[in-house]
Computed example of a mutant assay.
Amino acid sequence: MMASHRESGERTRGSSRRGFLFAAGSVGLAGLSGCITRGEESDLTGEIIVDGSNTVLPHTAAVAEEFQWRNNRVRIPVRGSGTGAGFQQFIAGETALQNASRRITDEERADAEANGIEFLELEAVLDGIAIMAHPDGPVDRLTVDQLHRLWRQDSDVERWSDLDSEWPDREISLYGRDSASGTYDYFTEAINDEPGNIRRDYNETADTNVIVRGVSGNRDALGFGGAGYFYENEDDLKLIEVDDDNGGVIPTDETVARAFEDDPDGPAYTPLSRSMYIYVNVNDLERDVVREFARFFFRREDPDSPAWTQRVAPRVKFYPIPDSLVERESDRLEAKIEEVR
């Protein structure tokens, strides 16, 4: 069973998602400011530039910290420009790794091919997109249809009573990610059947922390964002149950994992559970330091221990991928490395 987000879990070198969001810039600065005076020396040297999803950033930053501790002459700046903005840099050959909270689009794939960028997509971690509300907000559960009516491009819903006549006749204030975000793309496709199909009068932002602050400060606010942001701020927010004809479910280790099972043994958090990815520039796999960092995600300290991508996931409020996926992605990575060496 996966570790609960409510448990401290196995501690490695950092302490929280919030810490990594704050310190991710420090990881980047360390990559630009010379040698780290701590950690273990190895034969590996160099810098690996990582950008992309603001949501995935804490996970990759946590893996990068562990890798840098074991290879203290390696620098890994991890930045969070957003999935879409990050892909623009990645397909231009400006970054070695790309964090992504959605899959690459056909247009982005074509641009990469035109630029001679071959890439490898690797599933690294699981997440649920949370519907967050003020603790004193008037609702505890929304159906998928109500979310669709509320967020779709031509929505005429302005007040709680527009969704249910028994709810308060008060205006709803909406917060969500902007169009550069993979979370935005996934949410709009899952709820409104098309990426980018969303009303234009919500408070959009590139920073999920802005959503947290907006929702926690207004009893009639509602927002969407990675579930980890809720669990880092659960004293100031509440989770809204999402009812996909299943009575209403919130994102937990178990409900998110069940969304990827063919025959789940309980309720699954659908349709807002998702895989998240790292993309590796195949040309950069010719560099020892990039090869070893990519391998490190799926490496185990011993046969019975979790891989690093699994180990750090609960610490930054994500959900570990299953062992079967670790083995599959590790095998795919090794096959690609053999091609380029």
Rank of each mutant, 00 (worst) to 15 (best):
M2L: 14
H5N: 03
R6Y: 14
R6E: 15
E10M: 06
S16T: 13
F20P: 06
G25I: 12
S26P: 00
L29Q: 08
L29S: 06
L29W: 11
A30C: 01
A30Y: 10
A30H: 09
G31T: 03
S33P: 00
G34C: 10
C35Y: 07
E40C: 08
E40P: 08
L44D: 02
L44H: 03
T45W: 07
I48D: 02
N54Y: 11
N54R: 11
V56K: 14
T60F: 14
V63D: 07
F67M: 04
F67P: 09
Q68K: 05
R70L: 13
N71I: 03
R73V: 03
P77M: 05
P77C: 05
A85S: 15
Q88N: 15
I91Q: 08
A92R: 06
A92I: 04
A92M: 05
E94W: 13
A96T: 15
N99T: 09
S101Y: 09
S101M: 13
R103W: 05
D106T: 12
E107R: 02
E108C: 10
E113H: 01
A114Q: 05
A114T: 01
A114S: 07
G116C: 04
G116Y: 03
E121Q: 13
L122M: 14
A124G: 14
L126C: 00
D127A: 15
A130W: 06
A130I: 10
A130Q: 11
D136R: 14
P138A: 07
V139I: 14
R141P: 09
D145S: 12
Q146A: 10
W151V: 04
R152G: 06
Q153W: 02
D156W: 00
D162E: 13
D164L: 09
P168T: 02
D169P: 07
S173F: 04
L174E: 02
L174N: 00
G176R: 13
G176T: 13
G176N: 14
S179H: 15
S179E: 15
T183L: 11
Y186A: 09
Y186C: 00
E189K: 09
A190F: 00
E194H: 11
G196T: 12
I198R: 00
I198Y: 01
R199K: 00
R200D: 12
Y202T: 06
Y202C: 12
N203F: 02
T205V: 04
D207S: 02
N209C: 02
R213M: 03
G214A: 01
G214F: 01
G225C: 04
G226E: 06
G228F: 08
Y229V: 08
Y231S: 14
L237N: 10
L239F: 09
V242Q: 09
V249T: 11
P251F: 03
P251M: 03
D253P: 04
D263T: 11
D265C: 10
D265T: 12
P267K: 09
Y269Q: 03
L272H: 08
Y279F: 07
V280E: 10
N281T: 06
N281Q: 13
L285V: 02
R287M: 01
D288V: 03
E292D: 12
A294I: 03
F296R: 00
F298L: 01
R299P: 07
D304N: 10
P306E: 14
A307L: 06
V312Y: 10
R315S: 15
K317I: 07
Y319A: 00
E327L: 02
L333I: 06
E334I: 00
A335W: 00
A335Q: 10
